[in-house]
Computed example of a mutant assay.
Amino acid sequence: TDKERSTQEAIDAILDGLNWLGLGGDEPPVLQSSRMGRHAQVAHELVQRGTAYLCPVTPEELQQRRDAAELLQKKKATDGSLSAEDAAKLDEFTRPFRSPWRDPAKPLPPSAATVVRLRMPDTGELTVVDHVQGKVSRKFADLDDLVLLRSDGTPTYMLAVVVDDHDMGVTHVIRGDDHFLNTFRQLPIYLGMGWPQPEYSHVPLIHGPDGKKLSKRHGATAVDEYRDVLGYLPEGMKNYLLRLGWSHGDDEIIPEAKAVEWFDLDGLNKAPARLDFAKLDSVNKHYMAEAAEERLFELLLSRPEMQGKTPEVMGRIRAALPVLKSRAANIVQLAEQARFLT
């Protein structure tokens, strides 16, 4: 639903990385942008069921509300306190948004552009039993009436992901724990439609060696960089990433067949894992030693440092691969090991 970031180039990069890792889908990918009609249909059905409503409040009015709250917070910080009237306003402005048009008896302004908002219950709480986070509850009063359908008819991510998961028969959602709070905003859509709820597992994000959230300052972040720049094999990367978020006793080398056999949700780690390139090298070195020499030779030929080498030089490197590959943790190191033959 994010049209600015959902470029064809970005889509191709994601699918290329998944396919390289051997994680391509059994069916073609489904783009949310191709299902907007279905998303809108569900939004309007929720309105008919009374679990959503049309709201004419504009983004500008919501921004005015946020700006007013910020001014009152600054005034409180400067003066040390607020009058009873201002304190009540601040409480209202910082509370989860409840539109006055959630009251079905309140008539809409004539010809007003409207969004579709989810009608959160006023009382009670929602409980999620997550395979990683455990049993967590949150009051409905702490959740805002989120927008499902924008005034131009386009769906929001919150609506689209729920509708697509339901329609595709998704039974288990495994995603980063930065989406955990979204679960409490998405489940009321399932409840409003009377749909079965999936099981959830929110795994911790990968951190850098310094314990902070992984970012570009820690080095490569895109999958193709690990392949094209750092020279890792897909089976090594997949094994390492599996062990970052899941464990099976003390096993470090877990081939794909064993991963399929052993994997269960109870093995998901609850603490954030740290990216450790030394460990990644150790795992990948195992797969380098097992890889066929012809495959490694083809990967070497694609390296920029190997361009322009004579057939005689490449022949010597090819002949030495059975020995060289056992000393290298990745294709970059393999090229360095072969330098003396050039």
Rank of each mutant, 00 (worst) to 15 (best):
M158Y: 02
L54H: 13
D164Q: 01
W246C: 06
D224P: 01
K279M: 11
L265C: 05
P196F: 09
M36V: 03
V203N: 00
F97G: 00
V42I: 14
F97M: 04
P304K: 13
R49C: 08
P107K: 15
E92M: 13
L233Y: 08
L181V: 14
L15E: 14
D86G: 04
T114H: 11
G194K: 10
E199Y: 10
K216Y: 02
D67V: 03
L268C: 14
A40E: 00
T1G: 04
L230R: 11
L300T: 01
G169C: 03
D79V: 09
E225C: 01
Y232V: 03
A259H: 14
D165S: 04
E235K: 15
A329G: 09
L299E: 05
A278D: 06
D26L: 14
S111R: 15
V170N: 01
W195I: 04
E225Y: 04
E312G: 02
S247C: 07
A320M: 07
D145T: 06
V47T: 02
S81N: 07
K106S: 00
L72Q: 08
L46D: 00
L71R: 15
L148I: 06
Q333C: 04
T51C: 11
A52H: 08
P188H: 04
E4Y: 08
W20C: 00
R35M: 02
G192V: 08
K285T: 12
V115Q: 07
M288P: 00
G245S: 11
T1F: 02
Q186W: 02
G249N: 13
V128L: 11
G192A: 08
E9F: 10
A13K: 13
L214R: 12
E27T: 14
T123E: 15
S282Y: 10
R65C: 05
K139R: 15
D91F: 08
A319K: 15
S201L: 12
D2P: 01
L72H: 12
M314L: 15
A273P: 10
L280R: 08
T114P: 01
I11N: 03
Y157Q: 07
R243P: 00
L21G: 01
I253H: 09
T221Q: 06
V128C: 02
V163D: 00
S215W: 05
H218S: 02
T51D: 03
K258E: 14
K309I: 00
F97N: 03
Y232R: 10
V115D: 00
Y200C: 01
K285D: 02
A69T: 05
K3S: 03
F140T: 03
G50I: 15
D103V: 07
L233P: 00
E305F: 03
T171E: 01
A105R: 15
I206F: 04
R98E: 01
F277K: 12
I189N: 03
A273Y: 10
G308A: 11
G211W: 12
L242K: 06
E294W: 07
P28M: 03
S83W: 07
A273K: 12
E293K: 13
P100L: 08
E125A: 13
R274P: 00
H166E: 00
H44A: 02
S111M: 12
G231L: 08
